[in-house]
Amino acid sequence: MGLTDSGEFHQAQRMRELLSEVASRRFMATSHDGLVTVSAVATGQVVGLQIDPRVYRNPNSRALAESILETIDRAIAGATETHLDSLVRVSGVEASTFSELLESATNMVSELMEEVDDLQRRE
């Protein structure tokens, strides 16, 4: 029975789709004062920043900068943590960071796709 017959090909395709979907999901964090909101994805990329106009009522650039950085850190950590556990369960790959998991799973999918290509060439 070939790789494509056993369903591993479909599993590899599903893993690729899942990795892409999870990597693009947004996680939002809001500062403690509610004036800064950051959106991030599990790869660590910040994809959104909102600053409430109320920051102008009491201008303090240092406090605002600290609030933005802290909220960015929380958004990235939240996005990574939220999605890492589900991906570890689905993939069976042990990893302590999203980047590590993404690399391992991508390598696994690439290897499976190469096997499928080899089998299809032989048929």
Rank of each mutant, 00 (worst) to 15 (best):
Q13F: 00
S96C: 10
V55C: 05
L3A: 00
T82C: 12
I76C: 08
S104V: 03
A75M: 05
E81M: 06
E21D: 09
R89T: 08
S6F: 03
A95T: 06
V36H: 02
R121I: 09
D117V: 05
P59R: 00
D118V: 08
E81Q: 07
D5V: 03
E66K: 10
S104G: 11
V22L: 06
S91L: 05
A65P: 10
M15I: 08
A95R: 02
S96Y: 13
H83M: 06
V47Q: 03
Q45D: 04
A75Q: 02
N107Y: 10
E94V: 08
T37Q: 06
D52L: 06
T82V: 14
D117S: 14
F98K: 01
R62T: 15
L112C: 08
S24E: 11
V90P: 10
A65F: 13
E111F: 12
G48I: 08
R122K: 12
F9K: 03
S31C: 05
E100P: 06
L18Y: 15
Q50G: 15
T30D: 05
E123H: 08
S31R: 02
V93C: 07
S86V: 11
I68G: 03
S39C: 12
M28E: 15
T4M: 07
T106Q: 14
L18W: 09
V41D: 04
F98S: 07
R121P: 13
S96A: 14
